[in-house]
Design a protein around this nucleic acid. Structure first.
Lengths: 187, 187
DNA sequence: ACAGCCATGTAATCGGTTACATGATTGG
DNA sequence: CCAATCATGTAACCGATTACATGGCTGT
């Protein structure tokens, strides 16, 4: 019985940030997001928007300006209040503390691999990370820092995070692999 | 219908890493983990261990050596194979790409706050981050780098990640707040 | 004509968690 | 003796996702 979920607040935030919009538009925002965390499928978005409407945080009305049958949603005062509450410290520890990192958790179990497989692990993930970083840097160019300052900032934050992981993996690779060399020499 | 979930592999990995153990022991590992991502409650752990047993990746047997009624689980050959497959590149994009960061996503919506509230946001989260970092650094001392190299490495990775986030938040704070000052002066 | 996008929604499922429930052992 | 910890498990729930289903509009 959690108060609010992150995906609820993200959807609410999108409507607040981009102004009144359709569920379809929200869906596209998720689809084009560089972060793959949330699904952009209709079955994921529509029920949550319905929930937000039942909480009276989003107000929906049928929009018949065009020919198409579509529904516009705008944020309510209560919705804005909920969003600001979610943004206001103190944030829950789960929001500030260690985030979940699938790479980190794999590293924890890496001694289940042979030295050769470890080498492969580091080589390939470093390359994949480099690709992700390149992509993120290209994405950053899509944001206009002047008009969309916080989108730019969040994107930059993602890049910094990827950079840190890449740096760590490079360091770890050289440490782990030289240690393996040493033990090979001893044997 | 996902092949395997991360929590399954983490439990499998713990049994592989620490040797045959009880569900209770696995539970305590989660409980004492610095990463709060997975729940350590019985209702979370026991069903997953049962699932792993039904997949024949874990083999359980009643252990009556002591007085207590407990069940020991060990990893099977197939289990070890599954674990190594999970660790072997190419990893899924979701494992290598941008991880979900509750702080980053909040930053994306930060223009919903007033300048004062933004200041508060940065000040308090920076302090919370510093606390988390201190805690993580203390935790690192519990790992013996020699005997438990990859546990140490993973912990270090978590620290590096926290450091990167803290650095970013400090930078962002000064940038955002000086910009606010400028617009105040202009008005 | 028809592919592809706009646009909306539902049903079934799935994985995980909370809350509940039980009892034995151990240390102070 | 009593609190804390060891130790196991189940039932109900919950939120999110996949897969399914429908139909109109648009550009080629």
């Amino acid at each position: 019985m959690i108060d609010v979920t992150d995906i609820e607040m993200v959807i609410l935030g999108i409507v607040e940030k981009r102004g009144p919009c359709t569920p379809y538009f929200v869906r596209k925002q998720f689809e084009h997001s560089p972060s793959p965390h949330f699904s952009s499928s209709p079955g994921s978005i529509y029920p949550i928007i319905a929930r937000l409407e039942s909480k009276k945080w989003l107000l929906g009305r049928d929009d018949n300006t065009g020919k198409r049958n579509r529904k516009m949603y705008r944020i309510s005062v209560a919705g804005r209040r909920a969003l600001r509450k979610w943004l206001t410290p103190p944030l829950p520890r789960t929001a500030v503390g260690l985030t979940y990192d699938p790479l980190r958790v794999r590293m924890y179990f890496l001694n289940s691999l042979s030295p050769d497989e470890m080498t492969q692990f580091f080589d390939e993930t470093i390359e994949q990370l480099q690709n992700e970083l390149d992509r993120a840097r290209r994405d950053l160019l899509n944001y206009d820092r002047q008009t969309d300052g916080f989108s730019w900032l969040a994107a930059k934050c993602g890049i910094k995070s990827l950079e840190a992981r890449l740096r760590f993996m490079r360091d770890a690779a050289s440490h782990v692999l030289t240690e393996c060399d040493e033990s090979t020499q001893v044997n």
